[in-house]
Design a protein around this nucleic acid. Structure first.
Lengths: 397, 397
DNA sequence: GTCATATAGTCCGAGTCGTGAACTAATGTG
DNA sequence: CACATTAGTTCACGACTCGGACTATATGAC
């Protein structure tokens, strides 16, 4: 029922099949041409031709023949680790980060610059980020990895390469994509940090759902604020104006106090770090974790209360979106031992007959967003290798 | 970034382009071949070939040449009103309905059988529905309209042609698609009534957003229960297990009373018809409307209270999904004059900086779902004319 | 060892379908 | 009436994939 908007032409057919083959290699490598043909439905001859293009482009490589049961041994195909790399960047409230990932998703460079960026001049922070990016790019070059582009994780709303607002960082109208692009010479895109964390979780989190990778889930990232990333059919859902997924501002207490966003009774207002720390009467998240481990009742109560509010929000999310899983990330992952009981109970108290989705805890920690950012760049090449071939051809004719 | 799963072949290319051309004709008819070529990006020669296939299939027709400014006059292309038709059916709590719609979306037959279906034997209701369907099919045949299939609107959850549960009708595990299919000889699909009402609203409701048709919105249908239909990019969003969009069970009062669904403080429990009528101390919706018109304070308060709760639920919907519009249908459309003020105020009280989507009122009344059902059948042909051609070819070789 | 069998991968002719330019058709303008 | 202008058709060409024939390389039976 999808409305088609572009004519289907031969080039598009080839582009689609290149993506199909490369995607199959990425999903199931090592794999032979014959297996790719069988699984995709393409003929062996077509696969041969497509694979040779992908090898010529440096995206796929052949490895040693693997003996099969009988007959001629298959030559294994893998993603070429040196073929291309992606640069992930992250601006956040209390750190900047950069990561380079190769085609296979393996991190090849990672650096975090801890510093509170609230109150600093925007230009200064951007300059630091560009420095970080340049250093990462040099590292990639020295490893022989051509960077295909960069993606910056931002803790707020971004539209067309510009930061529109970041509630907890205080930025507004910053042309960050252009700035980083000029500073590094790369194609740069911006994306919400919570969305990228969700993608990082999907690609690198190792969570499976009945053996199949997670493709329809909601990722909750408890940083300074509470972010949400909605993934539908393997893709981030952004809504009509890129504002979707703001789990932190779902109403969990209709008669509740005013939130920084202007609304009332938002989840972030009731279960954000500020509220939890205040209730637990501790200063930092590290203190809170220690207090919980020590069995401090105020701390445990504060976390459980946050868990209950989180459960209310998630009950509405489940009712509206019907995901297969909920993944708790960031601070909520750290607090999981004392949080998930209250959250699960609250979810089941507020949802009825519906069988609840699985409640999972992220293992990626605070790297999820940068990894997702770097992965986004790489996945773009995997999803559309033809565009990459065209760029290569244009560069060296 | 979409994961491709099928090989692109020549037939698929043609199928895609047939859909592209037919879609353009459907959207902008009357339209000439030359205009279609210009708008789709296909060449004139390709369009010629594709159009002649569509005309041969009876989906498109030429009408009288329309004089243009200069040059040879264009021959106008239109959807052929007699080409194909869709049968929409609806099972609901207090009525059954059938509608036949032609390719252009015009209703050609409509019949509603009012009767309370709660407590009746399922088989009896199904037999009535099949009777209704047969009568509608005869009417279509007498008008020379070949039915391409049928779609049944059901007030509950459906999975793969079976009704799984209908909270307000009490059905469970009914193989309705098979039953109606055998009774009528048509391909039958099932779909949630709220989702079909949303589609009906999109296709026939006449709501535009800045001149462009609504494609990302949430439709709220206040029947006996409160249903929701989420439309993303022109398609219904169903979630992982077809349970998405259940707006009626979003939490609006975390400490609220138990709902029939097993949850607590659901919207339907706080603002459903039962609750409103009880608060207003009237027996029927008609009475309620009269009381509101007469300025009865209890009635007005009851409706306003429902409006506030609805606003809480919608605030969460807006935060999570970022739609361009909210459309109120069913009973909420009838009550709109006394409801929307409270709802809009509640939405803005609970959402912050986000600019709220437009709050629209449906004009389709209770026909939205049947129209959506009939439209679904017809749209399926428009979205994939190649499949229809293949079926035609198979029937008369 | 040799031959049958099985599997992987390549090659090449055939078929499909969009492209693009040349062509025909039909109208208004000067 | 010539000419410009736009609509639609025809046809040679090229870019694909398909499918079967063919080559390459293994295992296992005898």
């Amino acid at each position: 029922m999808t409305v088609r908007t572009e004519p289907a032409q031969h080039a598009g057919m080839r582009a689609s099949n290149l993506a199909l083959v490369l995607g199959e290699v990425a999903r199931t490598s090592p794999v032979s041409r014959a297996q790719v043909a069988a699984r995709t439905g393409l003929t062996k001859s077509s696969v041969s031709g497509l694979v040779s293009d992908l090898i010529a482009a440096g995206l796929v490589q052949e490895s040693a023949p693997a003996a099969t049961e009988r007959g001629r041994p298959a030559t294994a195909l893998d993603l070429a680790p040196g073929g291309i790399a992606g640069l992930g960047l992250e601006v956040n409230v209390d750190y900047l980060a950069a990561m380079v990932t190769d085609l296979t998703g393996v991190p090849r460079y990672h650096h975090v610059l801890r510093r509170d960026n609230r109150g600093r001049e925007v230009d200064e922070v951007v300059a630091d980020l560009i420095d970080l990016a340049r250093t990462a790019a040099r590292s990639a070059a020295s490893q022989g990895l051509p960077l295909s582009g960069a993606c910056v994780a931002v803790p707020g709303l971004t539209v067309e390469g510009a930061v529109v607002r970041t509630p907890n960082l205080g930025w507004a109208r910053v042309d960050l994509a252009d700035a980083v692009g000029e500073g590094t010479g790369l194609d740069v895109e911006l994306e919400n940090e919570a969305n990228l964390a969700a993608l990082g979780e999907m690609w690198f989190g190792g969570h499976d759902h009945d053996g199949a990778p997670l493709r329809d889930f909601v990722h909750v990232s408890g940083e300074i604020g509470i972010g949400g990333g909605i993934v539908i059919d393997g893709e981030v859902f952004r809504g009509a104006h890129a504002g979707a997924g703001e789990l932190g501002h779902v109403v969990v207490a209709p008669d509740g106090p005013r939130c920084g966003c202007g609304g009332h009774g938002c989840l972030e207002r009731m279960a954000g770090q500020q509220e939890i720390l205040a209730r637990a009467q501790v200063a930092t998240m590290a203190d809170l974790t220690r207090a919980c481990e020590a069995g401090d009742q105020a701390a445990l109560d504060a976390v459980a209360s946050a868990g209950r509010h989180l459960g209310v929000a998630l009950a509405s999310v489940i009712t509206l979106l019907d995901p297969t899983a909920i993944v708790l990330g960031g601070a909520f992952a750290t607090l999981a031992p004392w949080l998930t009981g209250a959250t699960a109970a609250s979810i089941s108290h507020h949802t009825g007959a519906v069988e609840p989705p699985r409640l999972l805890v992220s293992g990626l920690g605070s790297d999820a967003a940068v990894r997702g950012a770097a992965g986004t760049v790489v996945r773009r090449v995997i999803a559309d290798p033809a565009a990459h071939l065209a760029r290569q051809a244009a560069q060296r004719p």
